[in-house]
Amino acid sequence: MAAVTKSTKGRGLWLALLLGGAISVAVGVYGSVHDPAGQQTISLFFSNTLSFKAWTTTLILILALYQLWSSLRMWGKVSWPRKTPPWFGDAHRLSGTLVFALSLPVAFHCLWAIGFDPDLSELRRFAHSILGCLFYGAFAAKVTLVRSHSGPSWSLPVFGGVVFTTLVAIWVTSSLWFFTNIGFPAL
């Protein structure tokens, strides 16, 4: 019985890895083969699309920090607050869903208007391209693990950690660079 459970968990992990890998590769391939439009897309009330992206990514980072803290609390790794409200888990899911939703218009402009930059001499842009692909793969893998209730016990915090780390690195290579090199607050 224990062997079956272990086998099921192994399959869950492989499924998550395969799905995540496929999505990362698909995003990278699209960014590489699509002819970059070089045009602005959504900007909402910001002056241009790049400002919109810089601030939206910053909002995503704040939500990701909430995700990190709430997951640590749910796993008992931090003890504040001492008692969590009944909606705590759903708030964690809502913030994760918001992260994904807000990332879509940002990624759309990255992929459609700019594309994947394979030039190693432009390290920031290259790293940002890789990280963007990695984020969607890691996110898909993590959601697969959560939804399927499969995978070894260590896999969820590892994939969650990869998603969070990737988001921080994406923010550093985009928004932080934008605010320090282009302007702040750059509305």
């Binding site: 439009a37 070089g38 045009q39 602005q40 897309t41 002056s47 241009n48 699309t49 790049l50 402009h109 208007a113 700019i114 842009r125 934008f178 090199n181 282009i182 302007g183």
Partner: peptide, 17 residues
């Protein structure tokens, strides 16, 4: 410029991507 270049170079040409 506004429709083809501003997405990367910024609407005010001060740079971006």
């Amino acid at each position: 410029f506004a429709s083809n270049c501003a997405g990367c170079h910024g609407a005010d040409r001060t740079g971006g991507v």
